[in-house]
Simulated assay, not measured.
Amino acid sequence: MNPMPVVMYLMGLDAEHGLLEALGFAKRPHPQGVGSSLYLGEEAVLHSTGIWYRGVLYHRPKERFYRAFLPPYPPEVHPGAEPLPFAQGLAHLLPFLRGYEARVAALRGEGRGRFLRRLPPGARRHLKDWKAFFPEEEGGAGE
């Protein structure tokens, strides 16, 4: 099961709508000028190509997890990074992702329903997986 394409799409929308900064992430330019900005949190770093949380990196281009040091920041992977089984990496990220979704819902006052109906095809294929991990986040006020 892989909910990450949906997670990454939704976080991209959150960045576009200014929610990441409202959630306490500091927006910074990528040190190498690569792609989108970095969003730095207390224990997490978000970028359009990955999520780093407490020593584990989800690398979107390869759809892989690594035990990794920072820097370098995504899309780079530290040369000493240790590949992790997908299920293990996802299990490490889930507490952060569930807390994140709850904070987004509280801030927005609604769930993700209307955004989930407009997923691009690459993420849409993983919607069932996302719903399995975040069933309470689908609906919400006004949905």
Rank of each mutant, 00 (worst) to 15 (best):
A81Q: 12
G80T: 11
P31H: 01
R98M: 07
H78K: 08
L97R: 02
G99P: 05
L40E: 14
W52E: 08
Y66E: 05
Y58S: 00
E82L: 14
L57W: 08
P29H: 11
S48L: 09
P31C: 04
P29E: 15
P31M: 06
Y58N: 01
R64F: 09
Q32E: 15
Y53N: 11
S37P: 12
R98A: 13
A91Q: 13
F69E: 14
K27M: 09
R64H: 12
A68Y: 01
G50V: 07
H47M: 10
P79C: 04
A26M: 06
L40N: 03
G89L: 12
L57Y: 10
A87C: 01
V56Q: 12
W52L: 00
P71F: 08
K62D: 10
Y73E: 00
L90M: 09
A68P: 03
V34Q: 11
G89S: 11
R67H: 12
K27D: 10
G99T: 03
P95V: 09
Y53E: 06
L40H: 02
P83G: 10
H78T: 05
P85A: 14
A44L: 11
R28K: 15
Y58W: 14
L94Y: 03
L97M: 09
L46Q: 04
E42F: 00
L38F: 08
R67I: 00
W52Q: 07
S48P: 00
L38G: 02
S37F: 12
P83L: 11
P71N: 12
H30A: 05
P74V: 05
P72R: 05
P71D: 10
H30G: 00
H30Q: 02
T49L: 10
P75T: 00
E42A: 14
R60N: 14
P95Q: 06
L90T: 10
P79R: 12
P95E: 05
Y73S: 00
V56C: 09
H78F: 12
H47T: 04
F69Q: 13
A68F: 07
T49M: 07
V45Y: 01
R67A: 14
R67G: 03
Y73K: 08
H78R: 08
P31S: 01
E63R: 15
Q88C: 04
L93E: 07
E82T: 13
Q32I: 02
A91V: 08
A81S: 14
H30T: 03
Y39I: 02
Q32Y: 04
G80P: 03
Y100W: 13
P61I: 01
Q88A: 12
Y66K: 07
L90S: 11
L70N: 12
P75M: 03
L38V: 08
P29V: 11
E63K: 07
R28F: 03
G50Q: 06
A91M: 02
V34E: 10
L93Q: 14
P85K: 12
G50K: 02
F86K: 03
V56N: 06
G35N: 15
A26Y: 02
H47R: 07
E63F: 06
G80V: 06
L97D: 05
L94H: 07
R67P: 01
G41L: 00
S37R: 00
P95Y: 03
P85V: 06
F65Q: 05
A44S: 14
E76H: 13
G33T: 13
H47K: 10
A26E: 15
L57S: 07
R98Q: 13
V45R: 06
L93P: 04
R98F: 04
R64N: 13
H92T: 08
Y58K: 04
L93F: 13
G80W: 11
H47D: 09
L94C: 08
H30Y: 05
E76A: 14
L84T: 14
